[in-house]
């Protein structure tokens, strides 16, 4: 492992207190206990645009929204089989998240790739929420081991297996990485800034393509999401 230092590890409830969240630092490794639900574009559209009643008590039952479609099936007897669990890229859901956080009271948004610090400061911090990134990506089998039980699958008929709202009981589910803190700082932006400082050296001697394309940036330090 080269000369790397191992980051700090923390156990956290899926209904965390503000104090629990305040102590988290960018780059901390988190393991989760409690109920978690999956919600992505299908659930957001149904709950926010079609105004369907959310089929669980939020945030008292769970304040942890996982951007995920599991590799899973519903057995003919109605039981569930969940294999691997991995997050999907979150930046595509920025359109719905401000309203969702206010409505659901979610304190933990768990996904892939994070959001921008602008998003964090604008609607994560005011709602007392932070972002946890999955690791890898993705450690699907390890996260699958953290699933103690699948409690319910809501809106499967309306949305299909991949977009349905899966309610999962987690036991030491992880690892996740703290990607935003209570001040809205962004781990990925911090890392990008450090990497950008070196890029001009790597690019030395290369040349831009003869034929340009519309809509591009050639500033390599720029954030490309959002």
């Amino acid at each position: 492992m080269g000369n790397a230092n191992r980051p700090r590890e923390v156990r956290l409830s899926t209904t965390p207190t503000p104090k629990d969240l305040a102590q988290l630092k960018l780059g901390d490794i988190v393991y989760l206990d409690g109920l978690m639900y999956t919600a992505r574009e299908g659930v957001y559209m149904r709950a926010l645009e079609e105004k369907a009643n959310i089929p669980m008590e939020l945030p008292s039952q769970s304040a942890a929204n996982f951007h995920c479609s599991p590799a899973a099936r519903i057995n003919p007897d109605g039981t569930f089989e969940m294999g691997a669990v991995t997050a999907t890229a979150s930046f595509r859901f920025a359109k719905w998240l401000p309203e969702w956080l206010a409505k659901s009271g979610a304190k933990l948004v768990i996904g892939k790739g994070g959001m921008s610090s602008k998003d964090y400061k604008k609607y994560f911090v005011p709602n007392g929420a932070i972002y946890l990134s999955t690791v890898g990506y993705g450690t699907g089998a390890l996260l699958g081991r953290g699933v103690e039980n699948v409690e319910a699958v809501h809106w499967n008929e309306e949305l299909g297996l991949a977009q349905a709202m899966w309610v999962i009981r987690c036991k030491k589910m992880g690892p996740f990485i703290v990607a935003s803190d209570s001040e809205g700082n962004c781990l990925f932006e911090r890392e990008n800034e450090r990497i950008s400082a070196n890029l001009h050296k790597v690019y030395e001697g290369t040349k831009p393509a003869t034929l340009k394309r519309f809509g591009e940036t050639d500033d390599k330090s720029e954030e490309l999401i959002g």
Binding site: G2, A4, A84, G138, T139, A141, R145
Partner: peptide
């Protein structure tokens, strides 16, 4: 690899492949 976080990620992935084989579950949810 000597980046602290990068190194942690690679180690987690190596553990993940083992977990997938042991449990006979998919290595990634996608």
């Amino acid at each position: 690899e000597d980046g602290d976080l990068s190194s942690f990620v690679l180690q987690a992935m190596l553990e993940n492949y083992e977990a997938a084989k042991e449990d006979r579950r998919a290595m990634c949810g996608d």
